[in-house]
Design a protein around this nucleic acid. Structure first.
Lengths: 148, 148
DNA sequence: TTATAACTTGACGTTTACGTAAACGTAATA
DNA sequence: TATTACGTTTACGTAAACGTCAAGTTATAA
């Protein structure tokens, strides 16, 4: 089932080398709770680039990390295009000076977005606290009347 | 232009009462940087409920706050449906006990989502820091070579 | 050998969140 | 009075992010 098992059952030339874990599309889908359609879609969008065994997609550790990044980006509400841009920063080796400066600008922008989100988040959390407090107060007063 | 101005220019019966500020759809659109189309769309979705002067929509302070909440929800990546659910909690007067318990459950769920987001956020921020450090290091080494 | 499970590539369908255009009403201004 | 600005409804268009068949391949289990 798991491609990893197949790999392990094959004879290794050098037993000192640990087998690099690999995954089928179904493995990843199950692990991350998404459909295979979703994973293929991400590939279409250039977010994933698994190698192939014939037609079959083979995912390694790096692909797995990328998928994790994509899903984290989604939880933060970013579009796949934005996520692509962010992931780009993770593994671009910036050679020239222009590239470097460009990346630093983008990093700053991204940070700004995230800090804004953090502020929104904390405000919302504190409002939830207030609402909850109201609810509990209400509950308490109902309880009181019951015991009268 | 601003409906508020019109209101102010009208004679007040009781000058001790401050005029409740009201806004046209254009006012809000400009203030929050969205199109009027967007605001009408939010109304279609039940997120806003301005009163009318004939056909024209009249927004008061409460509508304005709601719009602010909607936009904050969007920045956090929630769908309009989710946002509707959240805003519901803000202004529902929970009468019965069942309602209260239901709300407390929903509050807990919402908090969980937000806390997960917060974790994602902080992880991403710290990774951005690492990437930036790499960039700066790279920049420094380039600078060094220049000065050799 | 047949059936089952897991994979593949299309390709069309669906929902969300608006954009855009048409066609019209109203009110202040030149 | 004509223009301009701002508003209205109705309705079709669209990009994003998949869901959902269909139709075929490959490998293992019965």
């Amino acid at each position: 089932m798991n491609l990893n098992d197949i790999n392990l059952s094959q004879l290794q030339a050098d037993p000192s080398e640990t087998v690099a874990p690999i995954y089928s599309i179904g493995d990843l889908a199950q692990e991350f709770g998404v459909t295979t359609r979703t994973i293929r879609f991400y590939e279409d969008k250039g977010l994933l680039n698994p190698r192939r065994d014939g037609l079959k997609r083979i995912y390694d550790q790096r692909d797995r990390v990328r998928l994790r990044l994509v899903l984290r980006g989604k939880r933060l509400g970013f579009s796949l295009d934005e996520i692509a841009g962010i992931i780009d920063m993770y593994d671009t080796e910036p050679g020239e000076l222009g590239q470097l400066e460009y990346m630093l600008r983008r990093l700053a922008e991204q940070r700004q977005t995230l800090l804004q989100q953090k502020q929104d988040l904390e405000q919302t959390l504190s409002e939830l606290d207030q609402i909850e407090a109201q609810c509990l107060k209400q509950l308490a007063s109902m309880d009181e009347r019951k015991h009268q």
